[in-house]
Write a protein that binds this DNA or RNA. Sequence first.
DNA 1: TTGTAAGCGTTATCAA
DNA 2: TTGATAACGCTTACAA
Lengths: 330, 330
Amino acid sequence: MVTITEIAQALGITPSTVSRALTGSPRVKPSTRQAVEKMAAEMGYQRNVVASNLRRGRSDIVGIIVPRINRGFFSSVIGGAEQVLNEAGLSVLICQTHERYEDEVRALKTLRTNRVCGVLLSHAIESSDGSHVAEILGDQIPLVQFDRVFSGLPGAKVVNDNFNGAYTATRHLIDQGYRHIGTLAGYMSSEAYVQRLEGFRTALFDAGMAPAVEFPDTIVPETGHEAALKALEAGCDALYSAGDFSALGAIQALKEQGCRIPEDFGIVGTANESFTALMTPTLSSLALKASEIGRAAARAFLDGAPAGETVIPMELIIRQSSNKKQIWQK
Amino acid sequence: MVTITEIAQALGITPSTVSRALTGSPRVKPSTRQAVEKMAAEMGYQRNVVASNLRRGRSDIVGIIVPRINRGFFSSVIGGAEQVLNEAGLSVLICQTHERYEDEVRALKTLRTNRVCGVLLSHAIESSDGSHVAEILGDQIPLVQFDRVFSGLPGAKVVNDNFNGAYTATRHLIDQGYRHIGTLAGYMSSEAYVQRLEGFRTALFDAGMAPAVEFPDTIVPETGHEAALKALEAGCDALYSAGDFSALGAIQALKEQGCRIPEDFGIVGTANESFTALMTPTLSSLALKASEIGRAAARAFLDGAPAGETVIPMELIIRQSSNKKQIWQK
DNA sequence: TTGTAAGCGTTATCAA
DNA sequence: TTGATAACGCTTACAA
């Protein structure tokens, strides 16, 4: 591989000058710069970022840690972040935790030893506090948390407006005339789900309705299926689900029980996964602005990851599963 | 950050010995190794992979380039590859091309300047030949292509058995009693689609059926929708689609035209995207073994990316959209 | 078994 | 505006 030293020799100048010419330093004569650029192109020079990073003490790689990249939400976040970071000349190193604490620790260590210049993190369900994050990253590596965040950690946070979103979704079910509304609450180890639960409860309280049945630890279709059957037994006529996958399982259970949706039973999910628009009935869902979150997280990093929370509003998409009163919506 | 030099000073030995102890060299006295490990842990030492990579002339990062990470197929390939590579102590740098030639060039350059130890590539639709790949990577960086491959490039290839898969899918439509079978053929700039088209044609030929209407450049729902209308006009009663998204658009068009599926019209897609099982009617699809492809690609890289093609069989998943004769299938 | 010394390719500092 | 020099942290002949 061609080095700047070889370019320098070919031109009868020194590596320092070549380096300056190639990094855009103003302390180079224009004619020299041109000569260097020409020679570099001719010789097929490729900058060795590894050496550059060692010398500069930092890299141009930002690490992103997500539970799974094949969840629509996370891949869209990554897409949004990547766009902003690429524009800033940075690359992205992606790690998956598969929702496991151990994999999260491994991912953090990988990013640390690779001396990434920053970490964008949405923690695994299994991780119940953030002490390992602080311990591994130290205070050298800026941290931006998104979606699932630990409030105890330093750095910037980008979150969904879970409370108000869940409040709006629940309020919508109330407005549609449902009266016994339960919830598939997701994992309580995650603040996002706790906030959604609080929004749900508050909406019921504000409407003067009795506290409802709550099913925690529902996040996959199977657990949603099971919980929906219990909800029926408990006399529910609607469910706000803090996730779309559990809502999917719930709908399957309800259909098997002969429930008509939305006439007999209403349901709203969360995340607006792509399948929600393709199901029968189509599933109303509280949309997460995934790319927006990714872009916001990337921008927060570029701003130096200052402490503070950026709250991204959520948007209720009304489809068939909750549309008892046939609200018009395209 | 703590360096091996500092550890050496603290113990009154030299950096070389510390390095040897930490990299597991046998040329270290067991007691010394223990002392080094203890001190490293106490001081919170973190190996600087950047320096190590510069010295060794290579990194432990494998680059993966895919058109989009939020396509179920590609995210599963990445998942499979990541698993195998992580087990081998390697990390994964993921780049998206958004199907654009320019982004593919940019991704290749990024990986090259980061001196990745290998590249796993599935090329963008826009890239019609692989000359840029060879030019950018040179012969220093091993290349493994998967799914969408250029036959002219060196290195290993992992591909779907597109020909036989499409043959089987088409044969299935014939067996179900459809008689005027067309195809949504995808982009002809990609060998994968060309092979599927050949499998389709051969199945018709072997069954003694006339050549059929073929719609190239169909890959998104919109173009599938449009092509389906033309297929109806042309008298088709079935379609083999080389992609699921175009099949989705086609089904919408057919339903709008009052066609009953599968009674009046049969359709089989390709890729087995997650939504195929959630649609109404559910969509039969020729499944790609995504994780299997990812694992095979990673293993090929670990084996040194020897020239040659690994062919991964495809699996026909029969659902409602083609099940005219009501074949039993769970 | 350990130490010495050189160097990976780049960039920052200082001097010219 | 350019050059000389050192250093980033680590690895590895080679010598002891």
